[in-house]
Simulated assay, not measured.
Amino acid sequence: MENQFIKKNQYQIGNAVVTQHCPSNIALIKYWGKYENQIPANPSISYTLNHCKTLTEIEFIAGEDFSVQTYLSGKLELKFSEKIEKYFKNIENYLPWILKGKYIIRTENTFPHSSGIASSASGFGAIAKGLMELDVLFSNQQMDEEALQKASFLGRLGSGSACRSLYPGLVVWGKTEEVAGSSDFYAVPYPNDEVHAIFKDFNDWVLLIHEGEKSVSSTVGHGLMKTNPYAEQRFQQAHVNFKKLKEILRIGDLPAFIKLVEHEALTLHAMMMMSDPAFILMKTGTLEVINKIWEFRKNTQLPLFFTLDAGANVHLLFPNGEGTASIKNFIEQELMQYTQSKGVVKDEMIF
């Protein structure tokens, strides 16, 4: 499968500057646990966000000794530079020209760093798109669907969830019988005509409960799944939940959607607590917000619910429609107090 991305193109490289942007995404069915070369242990599905993006300019200077300088919001970041250098070396088999020059990469996010929004996904997604733009430029090809699929493949090798950020709407990564064409090697869009209209106009407001670095990185957390006694049951559960979700999306069963999405979020954090060593990324404010959401939903019957990434911050999900104003008022009046510094990122899903 990976060999399909090794092309025998003729390349004529030269100095070039390309600019790309890529949104972040939030998984509904979570990916937690992976095999060698960023192969997921279970399929996942995510919503692509609209406003939370990484903007990246790649300047390629042909003929120079290979090196990477990476600037994040104008500041030279040596750690990121080293990480991207290693990444470029790992993907030389798919882009044979990639080590034949010097790179100056300027990148910035439209959202706060370490805010519970997957900056690695949007970051590597933007870099992969930029590399494919250079690839088609140097080989005199076209940026088509095949090139976008290769960008998804390359993004995955940098950050697993990056492969999902290359497409709008609901996006699937990981082989599953429920979605034709799904793959462990790249992401595919979920069929738009199999999604009820109620799921196509959603808000995602991210409460910034904790804005610092996580105590345990996602890379370490994924690795701990190798010895987690509940890992295999979790991987099987994800397949079962995918089957359930497919029908939920088709018929527009919002209560069932809420139940499944919240359960997936809590399962993700349960896996962390059952790792060896165990770790907890939720904070007191995370739990306070969850309980407040449950109480609000019980009292009002309004569809405000949550999901969590691998961190303390809470993604508040709710559709536009009747009751939206009441939901927004509740968030601002009752939930903002649990944030670290009154921080919230207001986003939405795009199709």
Rank of each mutant, 00 (worst) to 15 (best):
A128E: 05
F330I: 01
S115Q: 00
G323L: 07
A312T: 07
I117M: 12
E92H: 10
Q149S: 10
K342N: 15
M282Y: 06
L78T: 12
G212Y: 07
F185Q: 09
A265R: 05
K100W: 03
S114T: 11
T300Y: 05
K75H: 10
D65S: 14
I26V: 15
E178W: 02
A265S: 15
L95Q: 03
R156H: 07
I6R: 13
Q38H: 12
F88A: 01
G212E: 14
F124W: 07
T110H: 09
E2P: 03
A41F: 01
L302Q: 05
Y103H: 07
A256M: 11
F202W: 12
A62C: 13
Y190L: 09
T56Y: 02
K298R: 14
A256R: 11
I61Y: 12
K259D: 15
I248G: 01
Q333V: 02
N320P: 01
Q340E: 15
D347T: 04
L308Y: 08
C163R: 00
L308N: 09
G181Y: 09
E262I: 01
G323I: 03
Q149I: 12
I248M: 01
P43S: 11
V68R: 04
A27W: 02
P319A: 10
G63V: 04
P229D: 13
S120K: 06
G33N: 07
L249C: 06
K283T: 07
T176N: 08
T219Q: 14
E194W: 05
V188K: 02
S275Y: 06
V314A: 08
F296H: 05
N9C: 10
Q142K: 13
S115K: 00
D347H: 02
H196Q: 05
S165I: 02
A41Y: 00
E85Y: 03
P277V: 06
Q301G: 02
S161D: 10
Q38T: 08
V289W: 05
I327C: 09
N90G: 14
S275G: 08
T227K: 13
V220Q: 14
Q142H: 13
K214T: 07
T176M: 04
L137N: 06
H51V: 03
Q236D: 14
Q4I: 14
G321I: 00
Q10W: 00
S67P: 00
S217P: 12
N241K: 11
L99Y: 00
S139I: 06
N140E: 14
A41C: 13
